[in-house]
Design a protein around this nucleic acid. Structure first.
Lengths: 246, 246
DNA sequence: TGAATAGTGTCTTTGAGACAGTATTTG
DNA sequence: CAAATACTGTCTCAAAGACACTATTCA
């Protein structure tokens, strides 16, 4: 199948970022408005090409994360590769998609390259009720990223990545509710997270307050995988199944 | 961060395949002996470069699958991207890894390009007791692929991809036992797979036999996701945790 | 004090795991 | 008949889900 004079084709490598966070108990994704062709004026996931030949892929993702969202030290993992011919009119572009989870930040992005970056409710984008469809195949990448986050909440301690260093159990519950799009019983949730060894550990005798009884503070525990897992009910799964259908 | 004269760097795109199958109730992976540098003479996962600029990535994976293993119409999904600088001495190579699941075939590969292809027990490769370490970062890719398969057996009907069109419940159980590396109670397994709606459906009144009471035949059911899931015990998980540590 | 949020206890149902026993084939 | 494999039933324990109740703060 190969002959001596044959040379493999080369492609352009890009990274795209699904950056998720929680704002007022809803799941948001960071979108940027494109300033250049193709898809000029459309919204898209933050991302860009490799800066130079020797740059690592995850390094490029972290660079874009810092440049476009001003974020460092956040959870980052790959979602997958999107590289069908024709997805980008500039040529053969292969995009590696990353999922980033940022803790709730009081303020939107400031002092970054991307003045046009906007936190947008994921629900609006997925349901199509947002301003415009996303550029390229970014709608699909977003859907895959959100489903990845949903699935990982079940078996890993990823939920704590949405919280600040210290958090209350109620805040942790809001993560699950927002990402899964379901309501959970607080009393059962308490029992469950407390019985999952190593998920959360008490963070000092401190407490925080706003209105009502102060809550105990916790921080992320030592383990990465949850046992027993936090299981999505069949109902939650089926309401999400439509979105992930190819 | 970008200026007008800047051009993004280009890279070479490869696909690598983790092809798993069951042979006499053990999990095997297809390896090929490399005939060229780098890593000449070492064993590696089947794979290769994109054949031409316009070839889709999954299309390239299916082409390699046919060329190197003579397989068509098998389950295929992406594992991830492996593209750290320096992983391949030939230049900046980005490899997209695929997981392929083939049903048990009576005979090894024949009439294919890769005369040097060998089915090798996964356990031997992962534990290091095999002939040689794999080329490139293929050991890591294999580990990731196997863990992907293990995880997907829990929540999807992937196990049926290891079986032929018709199979017995005992055969299905052997898939779980081989991939997870555990022993399961046949009686509880029967109850469980039968109660998972849409997992398996009876395939005619036929039966197959060799020695003892004939077993009912089933075929893959209509659903892709299992509810309730087939859960790995904590013991199974911890015995596998060592292998997936980064 | 009442409103609001935090946290505990208890009951019921479901399913996982252990294990005894029955059924249907071949030789 | 024995040997071998297929299948069914039953018990126990752990965990999910529903829901009543107590605790601690602020105004």
């Amino acid at each position: 199948m190969t002959d001596a004079s044959w040379e493999p084709p080369s492609v352009l490598l890009a990274v795209d970022l699904v950056i998720l966070t929680l704002r007022d108990a809803r799941l948001y994704v960071l979108l940027v408005e494109r300033g250049v062709e193709p898809f000029h004026g459309a919204f898209a996931l933050p991302g860009g090409f490799l800066s130079h030949q020797g740059e690592g892929i995850e390094a490029a993702a972290r660079r874009e994360l810092a440049e476009e969202a001003g974020l460092t030290d956040v959870h980052l993992e790959t979602i997958g590769v999107y590289g069908e011919p024709g997805r980008d009119p500039r040529g053969r572009v292969i995009s590696v998609a990353y999922l980033a989870i940022a803790p709730s930040l009081p303020e939107p992005i400031a002092g970054t390259d991307a003045a046009d970056a906007r936190w947008t409710p994921v629900e609006d984008v997925i349901s199509g009720s947002a301003r415009v469809p996303l550029a390229f195949d970014h709608q699909r990448i977003l859907t895959d990223g959100v489903e990845r986050a949903r699935a990982k909440l079940e078996h890993t301690t990823l939920a704590t990545a949405f919280c600040g260093e210290h958090f209350t159990i109620t805040e942790l519950q809001q993560v699950y509710e927002a990402v899964w799009g379901v309501r959970l019983d607080p009393r059962n949730f308490y029992r469950k997270v407390q019985s999952a060894q190593g998920f959360i550990v008490p963070a000092g005798p401190k407490r925080r307050t706003e209105n009502g009884r102060p809550a105990r503070l916790f921080k992320a525990g030592p383990v990465q995988f949850l046992y027993p897992p936090m299981v999505r009910t069949n109902q939650a799964l089926s309401s999400q199944a439509a979105a992930i259908a190819p």
